[in-house]
Amino acid sequence: MSELAAIVLAGGAARRLSGVDKPLLEVGGVPLLRRVLAAVRGADPVIVVGPERDGIEAVRWAREDPPGGGPVAALAAGLGQVTTPRVAVLAGDLAGITNSTVERLGAALDGDGAVLVDEQGHRQWLIGVWRTASLRAAIPAEPHHAALRTVLGRLAITDVAAGPGEAADVDTPEDLDRLR
Rank of each mutant, 00 (worst) to 15 (best):
G106D: 10
T84M: 07
P66K: 11
V115Y: 04
V89M: 06
T84D: 06
V82I: 12
A74V: 08
G78H: 00
A107Q: 11
G78E: 05
G92A: 15
A73Q: 01
N99Y: 10
P85R: 10
G68S: 14
A76Y: 02
L109G: 06
L79G: 02
R86M: 09
V89F: 07
D93Q: 13
L90T: 13
V89N: 02
V89T: 12
L94W: 10
A88F: 07
G80L: 04
P85T: 10
L90Y: 09
S100R: 12
P67V: 15
A108S: 08
V87S: 07
A76N: 06
A88E: 01
V72S: 03
P71G: 09
G69T: 08
E103G: 11
G68F: 07
T98V: 15
G113Q: 00
N99W: 14
L94Y: 12
L90E: 10
I97S: 10
P66E: 12
V82S: 05
V72F: 06
V115R: 01
L116E: 03
L109P: 03
L75D: 03
A76K: 02
V89A: 06
G92I: 15
R86Y: 13
G80F: 00
L90A: 12
D65I: 15
T83W: 10
R86L: 08
E103F: 10
V115C: 01
G111L: 03
S100Y: 11
L79P: 01
L105T: 03
G69I: 11
G68Y: 11
N99G: 15
D93V: 14
T101N: 03
T83M: 10
L109W: 05
A91M: 14
L94T: 12
G80H: 05
V89W: 06
A114F: 02
L94C: 12
D112K: 02
D65K: 14
A95C: 13
P85M: 09
L75F: 08
A95Y: 12
S100F: 13
A76V: 04
E103K: 11
A88V: 05
T101I: 08
G92W: 12
G80M: 05
P85Y: 09
D93M: 12
A88L: 06
T98R: 15
L116R: 01
L75A: 01
I97Y: 12
A77Q: 02
D110V: 04
Q81E: 10
L75V: 07
L116H: 00
D110P: 00
G113C: 02
G111M: 02
A108C: 03
G69A: 12
R104K: 12
P66W: 11
A74G: 09
A77I: 08
P71E: 08
A108Q: 03
A73V: 06
T101G: 03
G111F: 04
T98C: 15
V115A: 04
P85K: 07
P85W: 08
G96T: 13
D112H: 03
I97T: 15
A108L: 02
S100K: 14
G106L: 09
T101W: 01
L105D: 06
A73Y: 05
V72P: 04
A76Q: 05
V102K: 08
V72D: 02
A88R: 00
P71V: 04
G106K: 04
T98F: 13
V87Q: 01
G92N: 15
S100G: 15
A76C: 08
A73P: 05
P67N: 09
L90N: 10
R104S: 07
L105M: 07
A108E: 01
G80P: 05
P66L: 09
T84Q: 09
D65G: 11
A108R: 00
R86G: 05
